[in-house]
Structure formats: C-alpha cells, structure tokens
Amino acid sequence: MSAAFDRDALLDAFDSIGRAAAGAGAKLQIAVYGGSALMLASNFRFATEDVDVSKLEYPLPDWLDHATAEIAARNGWDPNWFNDQVAFHLSPLADHAADHLEFGTFPRDGTTPGLEVSVPSAAYLLALKLKAFRVTDPVRGETERLDILNLMKVVGISGAEEAIALLGRYFPVSAASPEKQRFLLKNMDLEGGADAPEYPR
C-alpha cells in the first residue's frame, strides 16, 4: 500500500511542481479529484495516498516527470502518486467552469506561479463517488462511506432517490440502472459523519 500523506505535504508538493513549471517557463492547469480534492477543500478528509488529476498530455514534459519523481523519492511516496487514471471516469457532461472551483496557484511564496489547481464542486464529486461506490471495499470502504455521507450533507441530500437523481445529472447511463447504488444507499450506516461538514471549507 502507498504511504499516506496529509494536506500540508500535498501543498508542499504542489509548491515544488509550481516552482518546477515556472522554472521551465511552463504553466500547468489541473483539476484534482477524489480523496486529494476532499483533503484540500473539505474539513472532513485528512489523508490520501495519491493525487488523481485531470488528463495530462503525454509524454510528460521532462520538468514534470523529474519534479514528481523527486517529490516521491523525498517523501517515500509511490512513484505514481501523481496520476491521471481518474480521467477515464470523468463525466463528459461536467462543465469546467460550472462544476469546478478554483483552489489556488503554486508556489505559494509570491513568486511566479507555474501551477493552477481547481477542485470539483461538491455535487460533481459526490456523483463521482456514487458512480464508483466502493463502500464495500475491505480496505477503503469506511473512508468512502464517510466521504459520501459528508458530501451528501454538504449538498443537502438525505435519501437514496435524491442521490440517484444527482448521479443522473452527470452519469445518466449509471443512473438508468442504479440497483447497486440504491441498495447500498438504503443500507448504508449513517453514523460517524462530521457534525458540520464543509466543502469548500
């Protein structure tokens, strides 16, 4: 299993990537998804094991390849800690402007920024979580359950049918056959969420 890291470590890593981009005369714009987005923008997720980002251009530029490898080596992280594997699962119906929030530019020291980061809206992130619905995963299931529970509170959804309707906004094919989501939502433990979940915080 990959080494987990916290928000401060991720922000420091983004500073390094932003610095490397600026040094190469480049500007990288990414959206961050999954647990890393929650860790950055919420008050209820505190660790992750990788960073799921929007589609990258391949081959990666040398400066980015070197920067992410150096960050991994320095921190003892998995070499693939920064990856765009989530891109395959994103919704073609999601609009970048309407369904994403600007998070920040990096580095944070006032020098020339080389990295711009955005995160999905709470509604879009919840839809992504509902599509995957990994609450029965023996390793990550409890974390996934709490993420979904807290995002439902943020969005103002309390029942399975409302959640499935939200899923349909972004993933109509999944919402057309939502038996798994309906069953898991109706039988999901509703205890243990944050008292006052925020996204963005």
Score class of each variant (00 low, 15 high):
residue 107 P to L: 10
residue 35 G to I: 05
residue 86 V to P: 01
residue 11 L to V: 07
residue 159 G to K: 02
residue 85 Q to F: 14
residue 114 G to I: 00
residue 168 G to Y: 04
residue 154 V to I: 00
residue 185 L to G: 06
residue 162 E to C: 04
residue 118 S to L: 09
residue 102 E to H: 09
residue 171 F to T: 00
residue 200 P to V: 04
residue 45 R to S: 08
residue 113 P to T: 08
residue 182 R to K: 11
residue 59 P to V: 03
residue 58 Y to D: 09
residue 40 L to T: 13
residue 192 G to Y: 15
residue 126 L to G: 00
residue 11 L to F: 04
residue 106 F to H: 03
residue 134 R to F: 08
residue 11 L to K: 04
residue 131 K to C: 02
residue 88 F to Q: 06
residue 129 K to W: 02
residue 21 A to H: 00
residue 30 I to R: 00
residue 34 G to H: 02
residue 69 A to K: 10
residue 174 S to M: 00
residue 32 V to M: 06
residue 132 A to Y: 10
residue 89 H to S: 13
residue 63 W to A: 06
residue 26 A to F: 11
residue 29 Q to V: 08
residue 185 L to Q: 02
residue 59 P to S: 06
residue 193 G to Q: 15
residue 167 L to H: 01
residue 68 T to K: 08
residue 81 W to L: 04
residue 110 G to K: 13
residue 111 T to I: 06
residue 172 P to I: 03
residue 197 P to A: 15
residue 124 Y to L: 05
residue 42 S to T: 12
residue 145 R to P: 02
residue 111 T to V: 03
residue 9 A to F: 12
residue 195 D to H: 06
residue 2 S to I: 04
residue 74 R to F: 11
residue 128 L to K: 05
residue 137 D to H: 15
residue 169 R to F: 04
residue 145 R to K: 10
residue 177 S to Q: 12
residue 97 A to T: 12
residue 169 R to V: 00
residue 136 T to C: 14
residue 6 D to K: 11
residue 198 E to H: 08
residue 107 P to W: 08
residue 122 A to Y: 07
residue 66 H to R: 14
residue 76 G to F: 15
residue 89 H to R: 11
residue 34 G to Q: 05
residue 64 L to K: 01
residue 138 P to I: 06
residue 32 V to L: 07
residue 34 G to I: 00
residue 167 L to W: 03
